[in-house]
């Protein structure tokens, strides 16, 4: 399918609302993390939001880690 329109892709194909709701920013042990809720209700770390390089060496904030 080829579209020829001045509209942006998002106006033509709006994103599903639920895509936004399963991702959120939470504070985990005092560090803010961007997490995704998995199907069984657990949270998986997507991104650690910190400027301290030391935090990135902490195993518990590794992206992909499951937190409760």
């Amino acid at each position: 399918m080829i579209l020829y329109t001045p509209l942006s892709e998002n106006d033509v194909f709006p994103t599903n609302e639920t895509d936004y709701t399963n991702r959120q920013c939470v504070s985990y042990n005092g560090k803010s993390c961007y997490v995704e809720q998995t199907e069984n209700g657990e949270y998986r770390i997507l991104q650690l939001l910190s400027t301290d390089p030391k935090d990135f060496l902490d195993m518990s904030y590794t992206p992909g880690n499951i937190i409760k």
Partner: peptide, 13 residues
């Protein structure tokens, strides 16, 4: 495992 480091006085954004 990833290496451990001492406290840093320089932060990274």
């Amino acid at each position: 495992n990833v290496p451990q480091a001492p406290d840093s006085n320089i932060h990274v954004l």
